[in-house]
Design a protein around this nucleic acid. Structure first.
Lengths: 209, 209
DNA sequence: GCTCATGGGTCTACAGTGTAGACGTATACG
DNA sequence: CGTATACGTCTACACTGTAGACCCATGAGC
């Protein structure tokens, strides 16, 4: 009931957005809410429960208000994927939490269901649907987490110097691809291309019963 | 040089394996090494540098001693994927670190190069290779991280009660798939099937220049 | 042989963390 | 009225990472 809990979670979201997840301490959060640290424990069991609550709120924002019936399964999958990436772009700290906290909240289950129905509509054999749902969600969350935590853009090191740590003969692939490795990457376009490849993978799975 | 640093990193690995990553504190580590906490700082700049060093040591173990020439690209990709999953099964705490620390160590670059050459050998257009490398590694690391952190096996909640939080009409996908959702999953077989789907995705990319 | 730098280690101290436990108070209901 | 319940405060404890000063053994150069 009492919106106090939501108020607390939102304050925690604000702190994380402004100063990063590690700045979310019970004391800082309490300050923000205008209360003593121990008062938070009336509304939140634990610090880990606090984190759960935070991603819970994000998941709610991620879901479409109403599942639109007039979209193809391709569009619905793409929309959910982009929504997920959008959330982690807005809240980079959230990315790796999505991996550690299993999908047990109602909203998370709802998201899984959207993927299930999309795969069913695509014609995937029912026995394969759970596996492909895990495949798709793993990739989407993984992409978002990689982007948010900088795995895709390794710091300030440019490709040349990164490669330079090793003798060139040991890295035949890098040598061959040198012209492409120095280009900047458009991660939005890349994500779209990846999604299209995944859709093709799904179509292939639908084609072999 | 002095192998003291390696000794420290290995002690840290042991602690993480035995009691989880959160048990790796400077004090606990110092105890294990038989030294004062501050002594560690002679060999390791930071706690975060310590973590970097730990995953560095794991990555070394992940790589094949010598890239075998007599394997198809499919086999090489599969071997690397399984090695990655094996590492995170042995050291579950390492999974999410793989996401947060970019691939800048020599061994990490070497691993990337193995994927590059596999994709080139598969006939993927060179302009597409970097993107597909990111796709493949994102999925593999994502799978490993999901498995290690329990995202694939949501706690003790069985599927029925998980689903029970919401009215059945809101979860048409879950209702349709009910018979399959209660089955136990063999994640090893699933990973293999996923890898095969990814290989097919690569072949498709190779087929359209 | 004496000096001096250097690598490795110790001790103390500080500011920060999550949270258990006891205590207070204000509102709502019998 | 009394009493339960929800909410909040205060204190205290056992941790955390790490800055700063100090110590001592080794080996190189004069």
């Amino acid at each position: 009931m009492s919106g106090r809990r939501e108020e607390i979670l939102d304050a925690a979201l604000d702190i994380a957005d402004e100063h990063g997840l590690e700045a979310v301490s019970m004391r800082a959060l309490a300050d923000r809410v205008g209360v003593t640290p121990m008062a938070l424990y009336r509304h939140v069991k634990d610090k880990s429960a606090l984190l759960d609550g935070m991603i819970g709120r994000l998941l709610t924002a991620l879901l479409p208000a109403r599942t639109p019936e007039d979209q193809t399964w391709e569009e619905r999958l793409g929309a959910l994927g982009h929504a997920c990436r959008e959330v982690t772009r807005r809240h980079p700290w959230a990315a790796h939490l999505l991996f550690s906290r299993p999908a047990v909240t109602p909203d998370a289950v709802r998201a899984v269901d959207i993927v299930y129905t999309a795969l069913i509509d695509a014609g995937v054999p029912e026995s394969q649907v759970p596996r492909l749902e895990r495949l798709v969600s793993t990739f989407v969350i993984g992409f978002a987490a990689s982007e948010a935590s900088g795995r895709f853009s390794p710091g300030t090191l440019d490709p040349r110097s990164r490669r330079g740590q090793l003798p060139d003969e040991e890295l035949p692939g890098h040598r061959r691809l040198a012209p492409y490795l120095d280009l900047p990457v458009d991660l939005t376009a890349e994500f779209e291309a990846d999604l299209e490849d995944i859709r093709a993978l799904i179509r292939a799975a639908a084609g072999r019963p």
